[in-house]
Amino acid sequence: MTVRVLKYKPDYDVVPHAIFWRPLRYFTLIFRDGEDGLDMFKGASFTIGNDIRFDLRVYRGHLNPKFTVTLYLPLEVTDEKVIADIIERVMKEMVIPMTAAAWKRGQPFEFGRLERQKADRLVEEEARTIVLKIAASQSNRIASMKLLRDEVPKFVELSVSDLEPSPTRRHEQLWQQIVRNVAGSHPTIFKVGLARKVRRGIEITDEGIAYLSSIGFLEASASNLAEAK
């Protein structure tokens, strides 16, 4: 099932139901500035099939607005099981790690306090998608190793575990080793045709662009970055 990101403002009121410990740029390049009468926000609207509509928003007053985003559902969605199913579906279709969920509807919530899951850290599976997103964000679709090292910390907040020294590579932290493995020697994204190795780094392919479109990072009809902006 494809996640479709919308360029226009939805015509429904929304209620918050989950918080993910990832920045808005992690989820999509198609977002807008908005205001709901209470505060300014940056956000994006999505659909999955014909029955699921949701927003991802970051308000200026949110806890850790640099690295968290809140999932909003239409006001009329009130059934707790339906809400839980939608959250699970969104996380599956957008390839959001389970550890990225800092809060879900039904869990205790203390106003002014939000804790990140201790197990939430960068792993190779997530790093593969982040590497593709960074390449797709470039006008030439190419990401050098230096660019990846500069940009990955903007897509996911590095945890204490991420910052630990690599046991096998001197002068590198664990997250840097993971990024190097994914972009340099890890075969997965190359074997399945999502990216190719080039002299300057890695280049995302048309297949990679289509994959990112299917999880809402780009427009579903995007065939290149220019069309996705």
Rank of each mutant, 00 (worst) to 15 (best):
N181K: 07
A136D: 00
T2P: 15
A183M: 05
P167V: 12
G112S: 04
P16Q: 08
D120S: 14
R53Q: 09
D39Y: 05
F111Q: 12
G193M: 04
S223L: 06
E126N: 11
Q177G: 15
V179N: 10
V156F: 12
V82A: 10
L29R: 15
R22N: 09
P16G: 09
Y72S: 04
V131C: 00
G184M: 04
W175H: 00
P153I: 08
T2G: 12
G37F: 02
S159Q: 06
Q177H: 07
L148D: 03
R169C: 13
E76G: 09
K66T: 14
A195F: 02
P23I: 07
K191L: 08
P74E: 11
P97T: 01
A101C: 05
L73V: 05
L75H: 11
G201C: 06
V182D: 03
G112Y: 00
G37H: 00
S45P: 02
I87A: 06
F111I: 12
V82S: 04
V182E: 03
E164D: 05
K146D: 14
L73E: 03
L212A: 01
A136M: 01
G184W: 01
L194C: 12
L132E: 05
M94A: 02
K197D: 01
R57D: 00
R149V: 10
E227M: 11
V156M: 10
L194A: 14
N140K: 09
A226H: 10
E203M: 05
R57K: 12
K7W: 13
W175M: 08
